[in-house]
Design a protein around this nucleic acid. Sequence first.
DNA 1: ACCTGAACACCGTTCAAGT
DNA 2: ACCTGAACACCGTTCAAGT
Lengths: 198, 198
Amino acid sequence: MQETTDRPYHHGDLRRAVIETAMGMLDEEKGWQFTLREVARRAGVSHAAPYKHFPDKAALLSEMARLGFDRLRETLEALPPSKSIRDEFGSTARAYVEFGKANPALYRLMFGADAGEAADVHLSERALAAFGVMIDLLERGQRGGVLRKRDTRGQAAACWALLHGITMLTIDGLLLPQKVGPDPLDAAIATLLEGLAN
Amino acid sequence: MQETTDRPYHHGDLRRAVIETAMGMLDEEKGWQFTLREVARRAGVSHAAPYKHFPDKAALLSEMARLGFDRLRETLEALPPSKSIRDEFGSTARAYVEFGKANPALYRLMFGADAGEAADVHLSERALAAFGVMIDLLERGQRGGVLRKRDTRGQAAACWALLHGITMLTIDGLLLPQKVGPDPLDAAIATLLEGLAN
DNA sequence: ACCTGAACACCGTTCAAGT
DNA sequence: ACCTGAACACCGTTCAAGT
């Protein structure tokens, strides 16, 4: 994680170091609005050095967003299979929201306007790849007769929107767990499932 | 909207002018990351002047967010009544998303981390007030037997999350209207309704 | 009571110059 | 080929001083 070895002043692999330092900073208190100069400082190089590896700050941000989507996809793909599609649906949904709660600054960054429009094409590809796990689940559910046969992209849009919405509202502290009654996350997933299932 | 009259160098109501200028800037190309100094410039005062009316930038931002939630609430409350709860539900949902699409920078600001934690209490109150229209609808639907009798806050969470998610994903350009097939917004609302309705 | 100007500590970005 | 230092044009914020 950290290069505690001597830095040979032509600092082995700065590109990687910049990205790792930056990703690490997201976990801190003020993970949002982090600064390029601070990244350079922590990486032990001058504030101009990162510009040899990234055209500008937005490029670094969108690289980080890309990494975030890859991590999310890997997390969802690595989930142990469940007994039923319904259970698998539930645990996938919960894992999605959990990822956002565990990495709020990264999750915001992934969907932030900061990354700019330049990388949008690549980013949406990665985003869709991450959500592909859910789409597979929908298709399997439809084929198996567990889910209603509706336009899959419409169902996928509903799923993604609901999960994204819950995640964002939770990060923003607007969807607090209730003292009484069911967890809003569970309740929302249940409602969604009632809309999808036969 | 604009004070084209002479400015009496003790500029009548600077507080209001700052807010209006700032809100107007949100509609422009680079509405996000707008700067306090630019607001002051456009309002025709020195860059230090706003500090006599707002403790800092975050305070202005959260005032703007508050205004945004009020506008959203007014928009939803002003909708003409529909024949059925289902129709009313659909048109309210569409109006919600439409508000976000029409004011993307404002909508992002309303849910942005920029506003800080200071005003969170007031902000969530306004946010919940705006969403109260939808909650009323859910309760009416349950009482009338149109909707399933589930925990209302769970249903509300599902509705809000879905609408918020669709709005955000649409603003981010990740939920493009399909060339073929139904609009993802309509499809998502339909799916949600199937989960809510009897 | 309300506003200005200069000042401070920061950014992102560029570019000549160093190794 | 990779990095540094100084420089530029900007921020947000503060504070003495002006009307």
